[in-house]
Simulated assay, not measured.
Amino acid sequence: MNKQKVWFVTGASKGLGLALVKELLATGYRVAATSRSKNDLITAVGESQHFLPVETDLTSEVSVAAAVKDTIDRFGRIDIVVNNAGYSQIGTLEELTDTEVRGNFDVNVFGMLNVIRKAVPYLRLQQSGHVFNIASIGGLTGNFPAFGIYCATKFAVAGLTEALAEEMNSFGIRTTLIYPGYFRTGFLSKESVKTPQTPIDAYSSARAIESAHLNEINGNQPNDPEKAAKLMIELSEMKNPPVHFLMGKDAYELAQNKIQLLTETFEEWKDYTISTKF
């Protein structure tokens, strides 16, 4: 492993981002990490000459540009970008307000785009690097009541990452889109997840799945974030890493279900589908 590589990780004060930063520092890498609170980063990670905590508002291009510049000033380069920051907005499409929806997209999608716009120029000049975009298995299959908006943000992440992979390839920059399943982090804690401001009681299925995520799945997720961190480091050292990567047995099973559903549906309606040809 090339321990001289510099990692830039967003959303690093908790969850998968925190697990990754800790593993990177323990392994000897240099790491710049962002969070809305620098103190939260220092409290969670500690202090080290190889660690640069940066308080960053990912929804602000100015703030993101400053974070990237601070990293370059401190370490001289950026090699691996991990767009990990994001949060889950629970709520049906009808009950979520415009402000709630746009807030989720601002962080999960436009925040990621801000990082790409500000960090990729350095990778491109180096003619090397690796961009990890963390989506969710909800970016491949969206049939979860009350998670439509969150899944929509992750579908957007998947789509833009597919394009990014093609755009970066000629510059020697690798791109990996990760679809995590459920990992045992604080992602579903009441402090992290957002629930609808004006819930509609008629959506009983949405309330049931909301309750299940907050009270049953939270704390009992089947996947280990420390194993995910080690796996991402391993992927970063591969000469030809995958563009699409499922992370977790549950993610694999849900993806297979989606593939089977699409295949069966496309075949069932094939005659209608191809009937539009001249």
Rank of each mutant, 00 (worst) to 15 (best):
V9Y: 05
K14L: 14
K14I: 12
L16G: 03
L16P: 02
E23L: 02
L24N: 01
A32M: 07
S35N: 02
S35Y: 11
R36L: 11
S37W: 05
D40N: 10
I42V: 14
A44K: 04
E47Q: 15
Q49A: 09
L52Y: 13
L52A: 13
L52D: 00
T56S: 12
T56F: 10
D57K: 14
L58D: 10
T71M: 02
I72D: 05
I72F: 01
R74G: 00
G76I: 15
I80Q: 03
V81E: 11
N83D: 15
N83E: 12
S88E: 10
T92F: 00
T99E: 15
T99F: 06
E100W: 09
E100F: 10
N104P: 10
N104W: 04
F105D: 12
V107M: 12
N108K: 14
F110C: 12
F110K: 13
L113V: 15
N114H: 15
V115W: 11
A119C: 11
P121V: 13
Y122P: 09
L123W: 09
L123G: 06
Q126C: 07
Q126V: 03
Q127F: 08
G129S: 10
H130R: 10
A135T: 07
A135M: 08
G138Y: 08
L140A: 05
T141Q: 12
P145R: 03
F147Y: 07
G148Y: 06
Y150V: 14
Y150Q: 08
C151I: 03
A152T: 10
K154S: 04
F155N: 14
F155A: 06
A156Y: 07
V157S: 11
V157C: 09
A158N: 13
G159M: 15
G159P: 07
L160N: 04
T161P: 03
T161G: 06
T161M: 04
E162S: 11
E167S: 06
E167I: 09
M168Q: 06
S170F: 03
R174M: 04
T176F: 01
T176Y: 01
L177K: 01
P180R: 02
P180Y: 02
Y182M: 08
G186F: 04
G186H: 01
L188E: 00
S192L: 04
V193E: 00
T195Q: 11
T198Y: 04
P199N: 03
P199T: 04
P199H: 01
P199M: 08
Y203Q: 12
Y203R: 05
A206W: 05
A206E: 05
S211N: 13
A212K: 08
H213W: 08
E216R: 03
N218H: 15
N218Q: 12
Q221H: 00
E226A: 06
K227G: 01
A228V: 03
A229Q: 02
L231P: 00
M232D: 01
I233Q: 03
E237D: 14
M238T: 01
M238P: 05
N240I: 07
P242V: 02
L246A: 05
M247E: 01
E253I: 09
Q256V: 11
N257R: 10
K258R: 15
I259S: 07
I259H: 05
L261K: 11
L261C: 01
T263R: 13
T263K: 14
T265P: 00
F266W: 04
D271K: 14
